[in-house]
Design a protein around this nucleic acid. Structure first.
Lengths: 158, 158
DNA sequence: TTAACTGCAAACACTTTGCATAGAT
DNA sequence: ATCTATGCAAAGTGTTTGCAGTTAA
C-alpha cells in the first residue's frame, strides 16, 4: 500500500524488504512457515533454536516485528497475553482466514467458511470506513470467542 | 449463555453476579462507565483512585476480570500490549460496535455502520461455526487496522 | 568499509499472586 | 460467624533495549 518493500521481491529475497537478508531472519521465517497453527514468539524461538543453537530470543522478536511490518506474517491475539504469529498468505490473496478462539484453553481454530459473503462485506466496509473516517486500512481481524467443544463439555462454570 | 449469573439481576445488583457486592467493585464499574473511549486497566485505576484514594491496582484488575466474566464489560485489544476495557452495551442488545485501530498511535475509533448487514452475516456465521466446530460462541471481535487520518498524513514510512 | 544485525543480559511494563485484614451476608 | 474481597508489596511474564562484536552489502 504505502511504502511496502520498494524492491523487486524475487521469491525469498522479498523477506529482506530493503534490509539485509540474514541467516537468522531466514531461519525464523522458515521455522514459522513449518509450524502448524499460531505459535507464540517463544515457540518460534524454541523451533529456531533447535536448528540454530546460538540464536537469541531478542532476535526472534525483532525479526517477527520486521516481518510483520513487511506484511509477511500476521499477529494473532489468542487472548492469552502472548503474541502469536502466522504466515500472511493473504498477502498473496491466497488462504486468508479468521479465527475461532477458546477462552478457556486458548486453542485457535482457523476457518474460511462463507468466504464470498464475508469478503464482500469486508471490502465494502473497508472502503466505506476509509472514506468516512479517513483511515488508511491495511488489515483486519475477525475472531469469534467462546468455548471449544472440549472445554464446553468439561462443565459450564470454571 | 452457560452459567451466567444465576441470580435475579435487579438493576445494579447484577454486577455482583452471585458474588458479594462491594463498594470497590461498584466504584470500578462506575468509573469505567463514566470514561469515554477504551481506557486501560491503569487508566481505570487512576480514575477510581481519584474518588477512592485507598484502592489498589490489583483490586481493579481482579474486578475488571470479574466484570468481564460476568459479561458486563468487554476487553479491547488496541495492540499496544495493554488491556483496554469498555462497557458491554451489547449485552443489552444495544450499542454494539466494532473498532478501527491505528497501528501508529494506537487510537481506537468505534463504528456502527452497516449494522444490519454485519449483524446478519455475523449471526449466520456464529450459528454455522457453532454447528460445524462444536464451539460455544459467546462473543466476537471485528477490528480494522491501519493508520488514522492524522498518522497517515504524517508520512508513510517510519 | 560501514551500517544494519546479532546475542546476551539487564531493564521494562503490565499483570498476577500471597497474605493478613476488612467487610458483606 | 463465615468466607469472600481488599490492599499492599513482591513475584511473574512476555517483550524491549543497550551495547560490543559480527556480518551482509
Amino acid at each position: 500500500m504505502n511504502g511496502r518493500c520498494g524492491r523487486k521481491a524475487q521469491g525469498w529475497r522479498g523477506l529482506g524488504c530493503g534490509r539485509r537478508m540474514t541467516a537468522p531472519r531466514e531461519a525464523i521465517y522458515q521455522a514459522l512457515s513449518e509450524m502448524a497453527g499460531h505459535p507464540s514468539a517463544d515457540e518460534v524461538f524454541q523451533k529456531v533454536r533447535a536448528g540454530r543453537p546460538g540464536i537469541g530470543l531478542a532476535t526472534v522478536y525483532r525479526n517477527l516485528e520486521l516481518l510483520r511490518n513487511g506484511g509477511h506474517i500476521r499477529l494473532v491475539d489468542a487472548g492469552d497475553g502472548k503474541a502469536h504469529f502466522e504466515l500472511n498468505h493473504a498477502a498473496g490473496g491466497g488462504g486468508h482466514h479468521h479465527h475461532l478462539i477458546c477462552r478457556r484453553c486458548g486453542s485457535v481454530v482457523d476457518y474460511m467458511d462463507f468466504e464470498r459473503e464475508e469478503l464482500e462485506l469486508i471490502s465494502k466496509l473497508e472502503k466505506h470506513l476509509s472514506r468516512k473516517y479517513g483511515h488508511q486500512i491495511t488489515d483486519h481481524d475477525i475472531s469469534f470467542y467462546g468455548l471449544c467443544q472440549k472445554c464446553a463439555a468439561q462443565g459450564s462454570k470454571r
